[in-house]
Design a protein around this nucleic acid. Sequence first.
DNA 1: GCTTTGTTAGAAACTGGTTACTCAGCCCGG
DNA 2: CCGGGCTGAGTAACCAGTTTCTAACAAAGC
Lengths: 371, 371
Amino acid sequence: MSLTGDRRAAQPADEPTGGPRSGRRRRSGRPEQPAATIGRVAEAAGVSRATVSRVMNGSPTVAAELAARVRAAAEALNYEPSLVARSLALGRTSTVSLIVPDLSNPMFQDVLRGLSHAAAGQGYRLLVAESNENVAEEAILAVEARRRSDGLVLASPRVPEAELRAISDRLAPLVLLNRDLPGSSVPSLSVDYAAGIAAIVAHLRSLGHRRIVYLAGPAASTSNRERQAALRANCAAEPVCVLTELACGATFDDGHAAAKAILRSGATAVVAFNDMVAFGALSGLHELGIGVPRDLSVAGFDDIPFARYTTPPLTTASIPRNELGRQAWDRLWALLGGGPAGHDVHFQPRLLVRDSTGPVPAGRAEAVGER
Amino acid sequence: MSLTGDRRAAQPADEPTGGPRSGRRRRSGRPEQPAATIGRVAEAAGVSRATVSRVMNGSPTVAAELAARVRAAAEALNYEPSLVARSLALGRTSTVSLIVPDLSNPMFQDVLRGLSHAAAGQGYRLLVAESNENVAEEAILAVEARRRSDGLVLASPRVPEAELRAISDRLAPLVLLNRDLPGSSVPSLSVDYAAGIAAIVAHLRSLGHRRIVYLAGPAASTSNRERQAALRANCAAEPVCVLTELACGATFDDGHAAAKAILRSGATAVVAFNDMVAFGALSGLHELGIGVPRDLSVAGFDDIPFARYTTPPLTTASIPRNELGRQAWDRLWALLGGGPAGHDVHFQPRLLVRDSTGPVPAGRAEAVGER
DNA sequence: GCTTTGTTAGAAACTGGTTACTCAGCCCGG
DNA sequence: CCGGGCTGAGTAACCAGTTTCTAACAAAGC
């Protein structure tokens, strides 16, 4: 028995010819040829593997005639370089990962698209994972996703800061979405929810509203906390502003269910956690015979694609979701090149005044002693 | 110069200690340790690489004490096995790819989610690519995505059949969405659009409608062609059915713009290419003062999440989008195991009768000589 | 004509894991 | 007391590429 024996030598010689040995794992089904490797192409072309590699990578240091021969051999064998082997040799996978809490959220869908497009421009592909299910394992998921790729874009509002800090260097190159890691050098892109809320409140005030009800999102949500805090701060700054808060949620149905409570609050304007909730509120109020914006004004947040099409079209704060993905790629690309990632960005929402907000109904402005 | 020289020997010895050599590519930023390899762990634990590998993979043939030592060494070095090297050795990446034409389409968003979840259950991750941009390169994209992973789910309505057939064995294991490859063994999951259209038409007929207008989707879209063909067939089967077709599109705005043409058609019912178009039509008709379903009935297709929330809520045909993704994974998983993929599935849409369809207005039923 | 320079292309080391095979050591029965 | 069976761990081949170093050869210069 040969000491240099191929460990597959024990397999039955089931190849019809003495030809190429079969791939380790063969699929059932089609006859399927043995998956050409660089070695087999080299053999067929009568050159070394190094030369094949050079030809496949367009190195100019190969004589034209030889290169043609190699290409012909590659073609004939249907050769495709193994990207895994290439990744190993190069130490680079040309893949980046994106982790989002919830793929059904339009926000992250657009981030996904923006990131995917931008990354594709540099030949990078995107690995996607949703962390919705097991919040506890979010950090593990992040580490694992990062290991499969060259970099990570992480939108993870729920991982505790200490834990995130502990693994942040294992995740680098890393770009954070919608949260930051104070004192670290991890680039972070976020939306200035406070500014968006401020714009909405200013708009409502300019219409004369002094009593506002907030339909709060999930308590665990960072973005809800930010929006809520901004709302409180903005109202506190205005002596004649009354803010009511209703625990609500993040869905259409949550907003819909809140309609009666909205009326009971006595407010003249509704600020919803997001557009879906606003949308639900619109629907619930409609069923109660309340006119919007005639009797009550309603504002959302996010500017999801459908916000333009509700009846009435929704006043909301728009955030550049695609841009968020694109810029995340810019940051990550910079980090991948070893350079600095550029400044953090705090995206400013843009107030979109549509038809769901209007002046305070006559006779209700003085409810809190206005003027 | 040593013949066994490390090719990195020429690099400046910038390590602060004589310690571990640095990783080939170092990032700027954090100090960053040298990325432990299995060899370094083996060295630290005083065992062979084989033993480290066995410990990391939970092989029971390692003495408990030794295993503990290895684990301690791995821990101390912050060792994480390279998934790329692992993939190369195992001939398996534990990644599958999904290619969709358009990530903004709710249909594919749900397929993405369903597939991602299902695949995660078996430890597989998902690589996502959108082929929207360059239709011409869709086939190339598919091949490339497939090469980075172990299998492919392809929703590619526009690649010509001949071309798809030509590359289908390079793409295997492959699962097709919303198209098939007759005569091949490639599993295919699709939606029976014809059945959905038939259900809608039957519903409209039962309400007395005999004049239907179809707001056609993009001409290049396979699903539009199927819906259109089914509509023609269904109407042809009914002697007293008049079908008008309007070139429209796939967006809200397309539907909105079609409102006047709808009225001119004299039809009593509208069948839209999809929900977005129906939604737009609803809006446009509303602006023209047309009551739905009082004056005109409107039906959509797809049951996108918002269809429940339009005013009036949209009658439409629902397709099990998540299920499509899940089943795609089932098929792919079977193929990855080398087994047969199970039967093709033709998902049957479910008619959801909501409020946007109603009886033909009095006085219009006889427009085509009914009864 | 002989050295110098410049191309090419090959040999071999390298990426970081996995695993078939081998063998040392131990326990036990004959 | 010796051979056989079992266990645990090491050796080395292997996955499929990339790249450094080296050497052969040709052309150019002196």
